[in-house]
Design a protein around this nucleic acid. Structure first.
Lengths: 114, 114
DNA sequence: CCGTATCCTAGCAGATACTG
DNA sequence: CAGTATCTGCTAGGATACGG
């Protein structure tokens, strides 16, 4: 895996919020926090059909570093970790909810032809 | 990528639009149509620092196929092609505009420390 | 100017193993 | 359960060059 120190010395590895949002899976991950306030790792993984643990882990870190998500670790066996949006990201939640509603209404042209 | 038709025949139409939105660059491309109604290829390429012609071309096709964008070709030399959002995608425009305003307000935690 | 063809690297999935 | 580590193999995506 990549070395976190090298990233720190170079400053911010991800220049801005748009780059994070522009990455694969990010939007889909955030969408899930609009239907459910608190989500656990494997729960999220199951709802994102096709994502690997590695990449999900990476994206969650991205979002955590950007301050959009926070995690709560329960020192239990088996482990339990909860992810949720930060208060600052709540505003984003309503926007994505609108996007969700728009997408639900959306029918691609190919289907309309049928 | 997997064949989109196979998804359609299975009736999973909504997954399509999210898959397009979830792809790299898509959101950034759409963002540009909120500040400018009509955009040309190289103009778009210039504002998306880092994207290649190949991928921009791919994404524009994705969005055209999904019915979000339309292109107007002027039979001139040198060629001139204009891209714009379709009327049906206008609703999306306002949502992304909100997202844009949110992002402008957003300061990542790393920056706030300074 | 608007792309496509080509080549090549980086990102990602999938499997498996390991840890707390 | 919630990850991290490693390897294989495939595909998305970047760089460049060229053609309409």
């Amino acid at each position: 895996m990549k070395d976190p120190k090298s990233e720190q010395t170079q400053g911010c590895e991800i220049a801005n919020i748009w780059e994070v949002l522009g990455r694969r899976w990010t939007l889909l991950i955030l969408k899930n926090f609009c239907t459910k306030e608190v989500i656990r790792f494997n729960e999220l993984k199951r709802s994102l059909s096709g994502i690997s643990s590695t990449v999900l882990s990476d994206r969650l870190l991205d979002l955590e570093r950007e301050g959009l998500l926070s995690k709560k670790i329960y020192p239990e066996i088996p482990p339990k970790v909860e992810y949720r949006m930060t208060p600052q990201a709540r505003e984003l939640e309503s926007i994505i909810n609108e996007l969700r509603k728009w997408a639900d209404r959306w029918k691609s042209p190919q289907l309309q032809k049928a």
